[in-house]
């Protein structure tokens, strides 16, 4: 009993240095959250700025126009996050079937090249998209030559299916990269299990269904839950480069909205306030999801 306790303390001592790092780099700077309660604007010091209480927390909902805008922004955020959650199994299945490819050089090739888009910055992705989809670009030229259309289609300017298109871009860019995690998880499966199944006469489909997928499902669930808790953050770079005045109504997600709103020094307090709200939502969601996980899978994920 006492020995166990002692062991517990010793194990804690092992991780203590890392906990200290976390405290310094992630928790200590949180004192900066108090900027959200002031009209802060550099280069003034905080003490020279007026204390405004919760002003910035209800700034975005203090009249009808803003409420309407915020509603649309949240709708977009839910839509785009929802789509990626709905298809979150894609990288996993990508990895599973990739693993089934027998020709190893080809497998390696596919695995390598599908990570390439991850390295192309969004700015450059947009330049390429523009070259391909502009009024005289390859796609329009092909369609016109084929007689399918007679006026160029303004793909990038259209406000239709924006969420879906954004999801497609994101999948193209990230699927191969995200698959790496699942490939690792698959490699971690005990080969003896698979060999045993094969000896029992299971075809590949059955092996996948009964062995591969159940083995990597824990990884999938943990990642899914971690992402779910983060659904308010879509990042903004992708949407920033693809936004224009014609599609903005459907592309403006929360992160981009805050960026556009809080540009320049004067927006620092507002951006901080929204950041706090987002964190609170995420942490609450995390706790709820953990409960859900406990109830359904019998174990929490954190």
């Amino acid at each position: 009993m006492n020995k166990k306790k002692l062991r517990g303390y010793r194990e804690f001592l092992y991780v203590l240095p890392f906990i200290i790092l976390v405290l310094i780099f992630a928790y200590y700077p949180l004192y900066g959250w108090r900027y959200a309660f002031y009209d802060y604007k550099p280069p003034k010091t905080l003490s020279e700025c007026a204390f405004t209480g919760l002003k910035w927390f209800h700034y975005m909902i203090d009249n009808d126009t803003k409420r309407k805008q915020l509603f649309q922004v949240l709708l977009n955020t839910f839509g785009i996050s929802g789509l990626s959650m709905l298809f979150s199994w894609f990288p996993m299945m990508f990895a599973v079937f990739l693993n089934e490819i027998k020709c190893k050089p080809y497998q390696k090739f596919v695995q390598t090249v599908t990570t390439l888009p991850n390295f192309i910055s969004w700015v450059l992705v947009y330049s390429i998209a523009f070259c391909v989809f502009n009024s005289t670009g390859v796609v329009n030229t092909l369609l016109q030559d084929a007689g399918l259309i007679d006026k160029p289609v303004m793909f990038l300017q259209s406000s239709e299916h924006v969420w879906f298109k954004m999801w497609l871009w994101l999948t193209w860019k990230n699927a191969g990269w995200a698959a790496i995690m699942y490939i690792a998880a698959i490699t971690g499966i005990d080969e003896e299990l698979i060999d045993a199944a094969k000896v029992d006469g299971a075809n590949r489909w059955k092996t996948i269904w009964h062995i591969t997928i159940p083995s990597i499902l824990p990884t999938y669930f943990v990642l899914l839950f971690l992402n779910l808790a983060n659904f308010l953050s879509n990042g903004m770079e992708q949407f920033f480069v693809f936004q224009n005045s014609f599609n903005k109504n459907y592309i403006q997600v929360l992160d981009l909205y805050v960026y556009n709103l809080a540009m320049g020094s004067g927006g620092y307090s507002l951006a901080t306030a929204i950041g706090i709200l987002k964190s609170v939502v995420s942490i609450v969601l995390l706790c709820v999801l953990n409960k859900v996980s406990k109830a359904t899978r019998g174990e929490g994920f954190i």
Binding site: K41, S245, G264, L270
Partner: peptide, 27 residues
């Protein structure tokens, strides 16, 4: 004089609105 924090946020939002509509009006 420089913008207060309030004005700076209002400015950004009005500017956004103005630009978005302006482009649509050109087209």
């Amino acid at each position: 004089i420089s913008d207060t924090a309030d004005i700076s946020v209002i400015r950004n939002q009005c500017e956004e609105t103005l630009e978005d509509y302006s482009w649509q009006m050109i087209f």
